[in-house]
Structure formats: C-alpha cells, structure tokens
C-alpha cells in the first residue's frame, strides 16, 4: 500500500548524532561542505572518508544506507568524471589513441571532482538521515530568523514544511482510496502506453487536487480560528538548547577543517 512509503529518508534510531541540535547539525553540514572543497590531496579525502564513516557509525546508520543516497546521482557522477577526464588539459599523457587523450592531471581532477560530489551527498544524507523533518524545519526557521528583518519569510517557510509533513500521510491515504474507487469503476492505471497511462491519471489527480484545495481552505480557517496570525508575537512550544555534545561536535568539525587546511599547506 501507498501508506507504507517511508517519510523522507529519516532513519529513526536514537544516537548521539540524532540528539544533536538541528541548528548545529545544519551549520556543521555547511562547514563539512566547505572542508570538502578545501581538500587537495588524496590524504585529505581519506580524512574526510574517515570522518563520514565514524559519524555514520556513531549515528548507528548502516553504511550501505548512506551509500544508497548516491545512487540517484550516478548519471551525473559518470558525466562529471568523463567530462573532466577528457577535457582537462595536462602534460603527462597516460593513454592516447584516435582523438582521445587522457593525462594524469585529467585523471586526478576527474577522480577528485567525483569524490567531491560523492562527499557532498554523503554529508547531506547524514544530516537528513539523522534529523527528523520537523526538527529540520525548526532548525531552518531559527537559523534564518535574523533574516526576518529583511522580510525573508523564515517562519512561513517552516510552517509550510510542517503542514506539508503533517498532510503527506493523509494525502497518501486518500490517493489509495480514490485509486481503489476508480478501479471499482473499471479504471486501469497500469497498462497502456505512456500517453494513455498519463491520461488514466486524470481520474486520480483531479479528485486529489480538489480535495487538497478543500483541505487547505478548511485548515486555513481552523488555524485562524485558533488565533494564528503569522510569525510575529508567536512563542514556541519546542525550544532548542545547545548542549555540551553540540559544542563537542563543533570542535570535531573544526579539527577536521584544520587538518584539511594543514594538509593543503604541507602536502
């Protein structure tokens, strides 16, 4: 059934990484990305790999699960690798035949650029796997909070995320019901070519949209009736507090960046 689809890719276990403040995790993820861009040697990448591996172990996330995040990106990865391999200028020729010329510099760049991409994905996956969507939207709202002064809709953004998360299971449930109801009227969602299959979605999508709009209208009224009037003057039920563990994690990432920079200078 459709309702069995897991929400996002949050991996719900309890671990020191899961318990970290979402704001800190967001900031540290950005710091990690910076670190990845600072790396220039294979030793640096080994360091980064070690960091990711240990974090995943600490977060009790199977490494396989983490790797799965790369799968959707494999086409882009291959393309990045090939483009860099063929079109990076260099002097040390490794292979040359017909119009193809591969140099050591090109190979190095192709490998490094691909690794960079892989680590970017691994880092962000680590964030989304260990942080529930609600905590994530909290973190984003609070981090972007100062931007409210320049009329950036940080609260609205977070509210939208929360509501979307609240209604995804409800709408999945509804999709399942409507699909069955149309199947009972002889609708066929599975066979036929692309065009006829797209057409067969109309009896599913129209009722779904109508219902989503009706729900939105009713929800807006219910929220207003509970005195919702935007983010100003609003207090929070859930408060986030930075704990020792957060500062410790901060220190570890700072160390990582330090080592990466050092590696860049020394090697």
């Amino acid at each position: 059934m459709l309702t069995n689809i897991t929400m996002g890719q949050y991996y719900p276990v309890d671990s020191p990484i899961h318990r970290l403040d979402p704001r800190m995790k967001l900031v540290l993820t950005i710091a990690f990305i910076v670190a990845v861009f600072l790396v220039h040697t294979i030793w640096g990448y080994l360091l980064i790999l070690g960091f990711v591996y240990l974090s995943a172990r600490l977060a009790r996330i199977p490494f396989k699960m983490l790797i799965k995040g790369i799968k959707p990106l494999r086409m882009i990865l291959i393309l990045t690798f090939l483009l860099n391999l063929f079109f990076t200028p260099g002097d040390t020729v490794l292979v040359e035949f017909w119009i193809i010329r591969i140099t050591l510099e090109a190979l190095r760049q192709a490998v490094f650029y691909s690794l960079r991409l892989v680590f970017l994905v691994l880092g962000t996956s680590l964030l989304t796997l260990t942080t529930s969507p609600v905590a994530l939207s909290d973190g984003i709202e609070l981090l972007l909070g100062p931007l409210k002064k320049i009329h950036f809709p940080a609260h609205e953004l977070a509210m939208m995320m929360t509501i979307a998360l609240r209604f995804i299971p409800t709408l999945l449930d509804e999709t399942d019901k409507i699909m069955k109801a149309q199947m009972a009227r002889g609708a066929d969602f599975e066979s036929g070519n692309l065009i006829s299959r797209a057409k067969s979605m109309v009896p599913l999508l129209v009722p779904l949209f109508v219902s989503a709009f009706r729900r939105a209208g009713e929800l807006a009224m219910a929220m207003e009736s509970r005195c919702y009037h935007g983010g100003s003057g609003r207090t929070r039920f859930r408060v986030l507090k930075l704990k020792k563990a957060d500062w410790l994690a901060c220190g570890v990432v700072a160390l990582l960046i330090g080592l990466v920079v050092l590696e860049g200078i020394l090697l």
Partner: peptide, 12 residues
Amino acid sequence: GLVFQYPEYQLF
C-alpha cells in the same frame, strides 16, 4: 458494483 465511503470525493 462497489460504492466507497464518501464516494463524492472520487468525482473528477
């Protein structure tokens, strides 16, 4: 023939 609960939600 099967008529579901709240069948009006299937009209399209």
